[in-house]
């Protein structure tokens, strides 16, 4: 692990191994709070911070925690980080904190966080671990935002309502009324809408991946094939 491939870590988090669309982790908050952009953004940022923090901490202690007790130790670190975030949100964005409610403490149980701590941070130095946490968090955040945007748009016909909850009074007029006099499409706001939306996002990603693969294959097919055959027995003379 001497030379760390930062580009790969970034791509993994954002695309190749995106926690939401590939690992399908952290579904609970993903599906529950993406009713609007502001909710998605709030929870996404919180998760991102927890991810970075926990990854850094786990990476720091990785050489001092034995294998058997690593999971409890990680969970404790994550819980501590989450509690810090919760307190911060309570202090600065109280209304959003009220709206997101239980889902902020539930970040502790977000499998993405524990998954990265165990799969990556516990085996890598601090800097790559921090980057991994950041990129994974960012990937998660992006999906949350897309889903939140989709659901808000389809469900209410607006975008960026109530951004002041996160950004203060200056964001009060950020709201976009994309479709006027929209009757509302309740399904999109309700949990089934989240499932449908996520399904569509994953499908879209898979389609893009498939196309990319085909292009790559077309390029690679020129390379000669090499047999790796060996003799199983006997001598050939």
């Amino acid at each position: 692990m001497s030379d760390v491939n930062y580009k790969k870590i970034s791509m993994d988090g954002l695309w190749n191994n995106n926690p939401a669309t590939v690992q399908i982790l952290g579904l609970c908050p993903l599906l529950a709070v993406t009713g609007s952009v502001v909710n998605a953004l709030g929870l996404g940022l919180a998760t991102l911070v927890v991810l970075v923090g926990s990854n850094v901490c786990v990476s720091l202690i990785r050489n001092y925690v034995t294998d058997a007790v690593r999971l409890p130790a990680f969970v404790m670190i994550i819980a501590a980080m989450t509690t810090v975030i919760e307190m911060l949100m309570q202090a600065f964005t109280f209304e959003l904190y009220e709206i997101l409610g239980i889902f902020i403490p539930l970040i502790v149980t977000n499998c993405t966080v524990l998954g990265r701590a165990d799969a990556f941070a516990s085996k890598n130095p601090v800097l790559p671990a921090a980057l991994d946490g950041f990129m994974m968090g960012l990937g998660f955040l992006v999906i949350l935002l897309i889903l939140g945007g989709m659901r808000e748009l389809v469900g209410q016909g607006t975008l960026f309502t109530n951004m002041q909850l996160l950004f203060g009074p200056m964001a009060a007029n950020w709201q976009l009324n994309v479709i006027d006099n929209y009757g509302g499409f309740l399904l999109a706001i309700l949990p089934p809408g989240a499932f449908l939306g996520l399904g569509l996002i994953i499908a879209g990603k898979n389609v893009i991946d498939k196309r990319l693969k085909e292009i790559q294959k077309a390029k690679a097919s020129d390379e000669p094939k090499v047999s790796r055959r060996v003799r199983t027995t006997g001598k050939v003379s």
Partner: peptide
């Protein structure tokens, strides 16, 4: 089949 096409002897 023990054919070795996997790169292993058997």
């Amino acid at each position: 089949t023990q054919c070795g096409q996997c790169g292993h002897p058997g």
